[in-house]
Amino acid sequence: MAGGTASLYARGRETQRGATRDPAWTRRLLIGLGLTFFALFLLAPLALVFTEALRKGWSAYFSALAEPDALSAVRLTLLAAAIAVPVNLVFGIAASWLIAKHRFRGRTLLTTLIDLPFSVSPVIAGLVYVLVFSAQGWLGPWLLDNGYKVIFAVPGIVLATVFVTFPFIARELIPLMESQGTEEEEAAVVLGASGWTTFLKVTLPNVKWGLLYGVILCNARAMGEFGAVSVVSGHIRGLTNTMPLHVEILYNEYQFSAAFAVASLLALLALVTLALKTFVEWRVASARSEGA
């Protein structure tokens, strides 16, 4: 995911002068190759999702979505995201304020540790909570004795979702806040502003688009996470099934149209995410060129 952040600050270069211009045949060849690859690997799967979803017509599509299990999967997905995103928001803001605006020992180490979940397989992200909370795990027996179920239940799903989305907002905010330095905050403090006022009135307005961008990415991943959630969920229909898990179940039961119908909702979510992301990038770029 880390690479996805870069283009937030990028602006297209419009100049193409003589010495740097490639011959026409090279251009055509490269554009042809690039677009073919793009069509085969990105467009085709996307198009296929919607085609398959609607293969049996709109009524079949909507009845697949209106199915109680599908609805409960949607609800659980929304719930998991509704918890994971705010948790990430708190962490992301705290971590970026700490790392971008202060200098202290261990700062680099902390930055690396925050990135850790990106390099951990989602399957392992699920596994670690099984090791801690399952009936054979560290806290599981004690929790079960007291009537709390984490693994094969909703809390496990939420925890796994938080794990895989952990760095998203911090990763967006840290470089942005760092690039803005601390002078404006110092100016606010000298003028008598309190800590919260400084953050709310000076820092936050400057990073709001980056923050929104992080929230969008975090939300997309929270709603779409499969591997980690799959490990901790136990696939109990109507209870611990999120939308991606429901897609899997339907697919394995050869209910292809229904599977793609639910998948199309997730694909739509992805498209909305990309559209919002493009919008935010555009806002940041125009804010930049104004500021420059």
Partner: peptide, 20 residues
Amino acid sequence: DVRERNVGFVFQHYALFRHM
């Protein structure tokens, strides 16, 4: 604290709040 010292500080790059 900085806030209590009641000093006026003009920063080298002015540090004007760009969104205000």
